[in-house]
Design a binder for these strands. Structure first.
Length: 625
RNA sequence: GCCGGUUUAGCUCAGUGGUAGAGCACUUCCUUGGUAGGGAAGGGGUCGACAGUCCGAUUCUGUCAUCCGGCACCA
């Protein structure tokens, strides 16, 4: 990414950043007005169109509508754009009108969606504002730009279905997305940025670099890690395990499945059974014709025993480990960690490469502690997160305090007292730590509130990387206790936490951040040793590579009968971190000439200096420049 | 799961109602080479699967699957 458009985009440490259109007042107005313009054009083209809402979002705008039988596809977008240009060119003033609720109901009586909107407005709003441009009026809070002629540099980007009011029980409306800028240059730069973002998609990089593969025969959403990918995976696994050990964690290894009773005890069965892989039941001869539904019902009623599921998470296994013996307050906090495989039957449309797969590996831990220890443990986890983020150069993240939605009684465990104490405990900790966070109602886990650390990948939606969750519920359900100073049995508190989140998702994030140009310590192939003339310089090359392997470097010798330029090019394309070129000079002088990935120039070093520098770079986990 | 689109060689993609093509990769030969593609020849595809229409389907229709863009979901 080389283009730099002032005010719209900025380049931060090699990372593509887009401005949040919603947060820029002028751009926000422009995009909002453009949404109206699009609705006007669509109304001209498809007179039966009924409109729901058309808000501004961080990447532009969209409008949700009901077009009856007409289905808009990508092919229709240029047509709509053309009509939008027509509407805009007629240079209509955009006029604000304020009317009463009754007038509004009368004016929009032909559009049931708008009527619904009006009827559900705050009782206090006595006047309702509308914006009119030529023959089109839309209900809207505003503000808008003054004239449609200001809407010149826009592009419709995609179409999709979207549930009315965001509820999957409702009808699907059609949604068209677009974006609008003040100048053509800004628009073109934005479109170019979207193109470049596609190049960063971990699914593309993962394929190009042979990180992972997918196979219909193996199954949807079940990634196969290839040698290059598993190298990264293994480094992260070792890295985070060592890091956790240095922070006082103890690692365990538990089975990839568990009995349904385990999940009934934890409560996960009731909440998530539909999202687990189907239970494994030994079907007796007289049961073999039963449907899955019947079997599920019988499992719910405890009529079938000896049923197992692939585990969707690890908390219950760790609870059982804690509960296997008596604990004293002196042992707390007890930090149990595991790099654990989990399996979730993710919805068809949710599966996405290794970012969201049906099998994945969590960097999970459960900390058992006293109420008094919550704050210090929380701080300890935050310190660990920051230490790790430092190593990966993650500087941009947001903290979200995820709370329950008290109205959503289906999702959340019903114990107001427990929730209130957990939420206020967490909030107090965050305030004491002086951490910058925002609150989100309805984002909590069913067993407790949590702090999620969110990052914005180069492609797509924000993802939660790290999480710290406070849980008063599971220790109670598993009847966990410790003995306090007074000799009484007390229930401990559990803090669930993940630092890298899942290794899979973290690698997806790393690939998108770095475009696959991983820093030396993470690169699947760190070195390519390339003899200038394979017939003459291979022996020295092999000796060098042997020593490098012995010292833990990931290296391959490319002594193929190809031109030097060809082999250099291939090493660059394959994102090998460092190429070592070996010719007469190097052989005679015991030297190494290195050229880094993405760089033109080369540098010649003595052998010992070369090893010293490379070890240092790897040990320091130096970031890619 | 919902709405829409997609699927042709290992990869990226052209193309057609009469059973297919390019570039790269691969194999072999020539080239003995100092920093992003040296040259030549060759092999390779039941055109996602199954039905249907048709004299004939990779092409048209349907069902299913995959993948993609969103929506919903995400312990």
């Amino acid at each position: 990414m080389t283009s730099f458009v002032k005010g719209v985009f900025y380049l931060l440490e090699g990372r593509i950043c887009m401005i949040n259109i919603k947060e820029d007042e002028r751009l926000s107005m422009l995009n909002h007005s453009c949404a109206h313009l699009m609705a006007q054009a669509i109304k001209h083209l498809y007179p039966n169109a009924k409109f729901w809402v058309g808000p501004v979002i961080s990447e532009g705008f969209y409008y949700d509508m009901d077009l009856g039988d007409k289905v808009i596809t990508e092919d229709d977008l240029p047509l709509i754009e053309k009509e939008m240009k027509q509407c805009a060119k007629s240079a209509k003033l955009i006029v604000r009108e304020e009317i009463s609720k009754d007038e509004a109901l009368e004016r929009f009586k032909d559009d049931p969606y708008k009527v619904d909107l009006i009827n559900n407005m705050d009782e206090e709003s006595t006047v309702i504002s509308c914006y009119r441009q030529g023959d089109f009026t839309d209900l809207c809070r505003g503000p808008h730009v003054e004239n449609t002629k200001l809407l010149k540099h826009f592009k419709l980007l995609k179409v999709s279905g979207a549930y009315w009011k965001g509820d999957s029980k409702n009808k699907v409306l059609q949604r068209v997305y677009g974006v609008c800028f003040e100048t053509e240059e800004d628009l073109q730069a934005h479109l170019k940025m979207l193109e470049e973002a596609k190049e960063r998609d971990h699914r593309k990089i993962g394929k190009d670099m042979e990180i992972f593969m997918l196979s219909d025969l193996v199954g949807k959403g079940l990634p196969l890690w290839l040698p290059n990918g598993y190298t990264i995976w293994r480094i992260l696994n070792n890295y985070i395990t060592d890091k956790e050990i240095s922070h006082g964690y103890q690692h365990v290894h538990t089975p990839d499945l568990g009995s349904v009773d385990l999940y009934k005890t934890s409560g996960h069965w009731d909440h998530y059974k539909e999202d687990m892989f189907a239970p494994m039941v030994k079907i007796a001869e007289d049961n073999k014709d039963k449907t899955l539904k019947t079997i599920m019902d019988e499992i719910d009623d405890s009529k079938i025993d000896d049923v197992y599921v692939l585990r969707p998470m690890n908390c219950p296994h760790h609870m059982v480990i804690y509960g296997s013996k008596a604990h004293s307050y002196r042992e707390l906090p007890l930090r149990i960690a595991e790099i654990a495989n989990d399996f979730r039957y993710e919805a068809q449309g949710a599966v996405k490469g290794i970012e969201r797969a049906r099998s994945f590996t969590q960097n999970d831990s459960h900390i058992f502690c006293t109420v008094e220890q919550i704050e210090s443990e929380f701080k300890g986890v935050l310190d660990l997160i920051m230490e790790v983020y430092e190593d990966f150069g993650i500087k941009e993240f947001k903290c979200r305090l995820s709370l329950r939605d008290p109205a959503d009684t289906e999702k959340y465990f019903d114990d107001d007292e427990m929730w209130n104490s957990a939420e206020s405990a967490l909030r107090n900790v965050l305030n004491d730590l002086d951490l910058d966070y925002f609150e989100a109602v309805g984002e909590a886990a069913f067993y407790g509130p949590k702090l999620d650390v969110l990052v914005q990948p180069a492609v797509g939606n924000e993802v939660a990387l790290s999480t710290i969750q406070l849980d008063f519920l599971l220790p109670r359900r598993f009847e966990l206790t410790y003995v306090n100073e007074d000799g009484e049995k007390v229930t401990p508190v559990v803090i669930h936490r993940a630092i890298l989140g899942s290794l899979d998702r973290f690698i997806a994030f790393l690939l998108e951040e770095t475009k696959g140009d991983l820093p030396l310590w993470l690169a699947p192939q760190q070195f390519a040793v390339i003899p200038v003339n394979p017939n003459v310089h291979t022996q020295y090359s092999n000796e060098l590579a042997e020593r490098m392997e012995k010292e833990g470097f990931r290296v391959k010798v490319d002594d193929r009968n190809e031109k030097l330029g060809y082999r250099i090019r291939e090493a660059q394309v394959k994102k090998v971190s460092i190429q070592c070129v070996i010719g007469d000079n190097e052989v005679n002088g015991k030297l190494v000439t290195i050229r880094r990935h993405g760089h033109q120039e080369s540098e010649t070093l003595g052998i010992e200096e070369f090893f010293k520098q490379m070890h240092q770079e790897i040990d320091e986990k130096r970031l890619f420049e």
